[in-house]
Design a protein around this nucleic acid. Sequence first.
DNA 1: CGACGCTTTGAGGAGATTCAAGACACGTGG
DNA 2: CCACGTGTCTTGAATCTCCTCAAAGCGTCG
Lengths: 237, 237
Amino acid sequence: MPNALATKTAVTCENCNLDKLCIPKGLKRSDVGDLKLVVNRNNIRQKGEAIYHAGSPFRGIVALRSGSAKLLSFDRSGNEVVVEFILPGELLGFDGVSSQRHNCTAVALETVNFCHLPTYQLEALTINNPSFHQVLLQRSCNQFDSQIQKTLLSRRSAEERVAVFLANISDRLKVRGYSELAFRLSMSREEIGNYLGIAHETVSRIVNHFQSLEIIEIKAKQLKILDKKKLLSFYQE
Amino acid sequence: MPNALATKTAVTCENCNLDKLCIPKGLKRSDVGDLKLVVNRNNIRQKGEAIYHAGSPFRGIVALRSGSAKLLSFDRSGNEVVVEFILPGELLGFDGVSSQRHNCTAVALETVNFCHLPTYQLEALTINNPSFHQVLLQRSCNQFDSQIQKTLLSRRSAEERVAVFLANISDRLKVRGYSELAFRLSMSREEIGNYLGIAHETVSRIVNHFQSLEIIEIKAKQLKILDKKKLLSFYQE
DNA sequence: CGACGCTTTGAGGAGATTCAAGACACGTGG
DNA sequence: CCACGTGTCTTGAATCTCCTCAAAGCGTCG
């Protein structure tokens, strides 16, 4: 069935508008050809549904095509801790590689569409194609890097954390071709606070403070950044 | 010169007492043979000296043989932030993989001896030996996992953080065959505080509090854990 | 339209920081 | 071997940031 449509409409890795961000980034054209043959496309989850659960066996790497998601862990009291937010073109699943079992849960923040690269294909690709594994290693180390950035941020004040958070989402959306100054914040205050390590009331207070300074404007979940420079100045000392 | 001694005394990957923790872990015997041929052994750094610097090009993966080290990043005011402490058998350098340039600095906390697996050998190994890259990917994802653990910890009180920190070092030393209940804390209060995201005065207060509760005993840098169960009870709610 | 969840806002309090000063340990040189 | 100086560690007091608890406002969706 997918093949019947392939001639005209099907999206493959080669013509995906995310190919500059997703796994194909850094791969040769011919290698992308190998990739497109083994990827499961068009997996859907609705808001609140899980993409995978903590504790479940690792089944492969996931690439978000549209929508956004959160990656969660749980402390031993069972409280959610948001480890990362995931935007289109970003990869998911590295939390399952080292023990072959996920230690995080990935949940859709809105309807998401994702591709899935199953474990056994992953191994096959590796053998035939060393540069593929190189790319994968790079991406996984990337995750490590971004966790270090988060550590740095955790030393700053609540105000700085919120400022950097908003600027960071803006930057990532820009790279993806969306507007960097007006977008939907699909996560709740609760989730933002949880991610930044501060109470949701604190998030709310700071967001409203930024509004009163005319740095941002927020209605419902729609965010406008009025002065990104000023926003960043909160972090740049 | 190393070859002349090889018959009797030289330590290679095959007879290294860290082979169950280091890169060889998870590799077949024959693969370890490939590895031992390309590793530079017996690199030394004195206390305070860097193993590599943030900003320098990535030259390969480092494996600590003896001594301990700290992995640092810097915030934009130039303050040190301790990202991780590294014990014997643990790997270093993943912070340089994704951009091919280190974004952390690694510094010896005492005299260290380490092995070095250079980039070009890394690539060669990958091509001839897929399982090797598999192991590398696993280790890098491990780093990611431990950063997530750190995030979880950053939500807890200062007391819990110190308790978990001490228990964690104890566990890691145990795996390495050292005593889990009596060891040298080679890092300063300052460095511990920096790692845990709390002031060094707070570390001092808590450590002394644990002493007064007869959970630990500390003289100079020598630590004795008198009641590990009680220590962990601080974290287990 | 009503209910539920998310967000806002206020007041009070707890935990950790900061600043400051003194104790201690270690290495150097007399 | 002891005196000295430097850096690390400890301890106390004042302060501050952020959290917790509580209640009200707003939006959204059946």
